[in-house]
Design a protein around this nucleic acid. Structure first.
Length: 405
DNA sequence: TCTGGGGTCCTAGGACCC
DNA sequence: TCTGGGGTCCTAGGACCC
């Protein structure tokens, strides 16, 4: 397949997937040459998980997402560093800026990886593989961290290629070598295939990507559902046509500015909790965190959902849709408490609670039927006053009375 | 002292409407 | 005395990704 743009020669492999190597660990140690060859784990507080492990730590089997207790057992000598999220976002922004110097067609998938469509840059900068090396050199010079790049005709193949390139390399997969590249891979490598789906596929006797490719779509759809079945078959042949979309990052298909999104916050208690007052205070904290972010983003939402995780790790979510979208702390909190009380938990031991607001839309689109002077209006004013004070005096300056002390 | 926190999308069932 | 069909909204849960 070749991509064409008017006035430009076709480019066989216009898509780059750039992925930082052990991003958090690399950033955390870039000023610590003494840690270069020492196992390093970022994250992993009390009841936490590993955010990132450098390559020396990975030798011991440490992986990101692993419970920190297990990681320390595997590698007791590892240096554990607390994450500095502010620094991560600064580096992330700088890296994304490097990408945008190459092309405006950049889709950030997360802090540390992005797709680049470079078909418009080849005249200026050279073939995609050359661009890939330039990007790597610039990031290394400016940020002192390494990254790996996959180069291919499609985003899904580019993503798999960057994994193959790790660490600190480039892999180009030309169109004529796509199936040769894909088919020997384990099905678990495909984007969207996790533990459960991999197990389902294994039960069907499908172990490699090639196995999936040579299975009728109908079989896959019956086993995995319409969407996933169809999608995996495309991925297995490298025929997925999803474009790089600079707007939003979507997991499946091409989203293209879909407004249906959510914002939430959740927190694991340092010790399991069975006291209603403690839970409610936490719900208020989390709600306030979420609604503050919503007001900054200029969005409101109609559906309030809470998550409750019990001591045994079973997790439930319950939601309630309001008649009107809101960004008012007290309204979201009232809904959250209503949902919580409806659960009727009698001193159950809770590990975590969370609050999420869904069905977000731009605040301008919320039509207010509230009468002036109604209570809601007062709460909204109070929120905005809090926001202003927070901006001027910082987070600790202003908070609901029940969160004091 | 196992198992974070921020998200997205899909599925399935029930209610409700035409 | 046998059961329609969509379509949309809402809710709950599950799977997945980084």
């Amino acid at each position: 397949m070749t991509a064409r743009v008017q006035g430009q020669e076709p480019v066989a492999t216009p898509i780059l997937h750039v992925d930082m190597d052990a991003f958090y660990a690399s950033v955390a140690t870039r000023d610590r040459p003494d840690l270069a060859d020492v196992p390093v784990i970022v994250g992993g507080g009390h009841r936490g998980v590993v955010l990132s492990a450098n390559y020396p730590a990975r030798v011991y089997g440490v992986r990101s997402g692993m419970p920190s207790t297990r990681a320390r057992r595997l590698c007791p000598d590892a240096v554990v560093i607390a994450p500095d999220h502010d620094e991560f976002s600064v580096v992330s922004s700088a890296v994304m800026e490097v990408f945008r110097r190459v092309t405006p067609l950049v889709e950030a998938l997360s802090m540390d990886e992005a797709f680049l469509d470079v078909r418009g840059a080849v005249r200026r900068l050279g073939p995609p593989a050359v661009i890939a090396e330039q990007v790597r050199a610039v990031i290394h010079d400016e940020q002192r961290i390494t990254c790996s790049v996959g180069v291919a005709a499609t985003v899904s193949v580019a993503k798999l290629a960057s994994k193959r390139a790790k660490p600190d390399g480039v892999v180009v997969v030309p169109p004529e070598r796509v199936t040769t590249f894909l088919h020997p891979l384990d099905v678990g490598e495909l984007y969207g295939v996790g533990e459960k789906t991999r197990a389902s596929l294994h039960r069907l006797g499908l172990v490699t990507v090639g196995d999936v490719a040579h299975t009728p779509v109908g079989t896959l759809r019956r086993a995995l559902g319409d969407a996933l079945g169809t999608h995996l078959h495309e991925l297995a042949w490298g025929t997925d046509r999803r474009e790089v979309s600079p707007g939003r990052s979507g997991v499946f298909g091409n989203g293209g500015g879909d407004p249906e999104r959510s914002m939430g916050a959740q927190e694991t208690f340092s010790r399991d909790v069975d006291d209603r007052e403690v839970v409610l205070r936490e719900l208020l904290r989390l709600t306030s965190r979420v609604t503050t972010r919503m007001r900054v983003a200029g969005v409101a939402g109609r559906t309030v959902a809470i998550t409750v995780r019990f001591a045994d790790f079973t997790t439930i979510t319950r939601s309630r849709t309001l008649s009107e979208a809101t960004d008012v702390t007290q309204e979201v909190y009232r809904a959250a408490v209503g949902i919580y009380d409806a659960l009727g938990l009698q001193r159950a031991r809770l590990r975590l609670v969370g609050v999420r607001v869904e069905n977000l839309l731009p605040r301008e689109q919320v039509h207010h039927q509230h009468l002036l002077g109604e209570r809601e209006h007062g709460w909204s004013e109070a929120d905005r006053a809090m926001d202003r004070a927070t901006r001027r005096f910082g987070d600790a300056a202003v908070r609901p009375a029940s969160l004091l002390g």
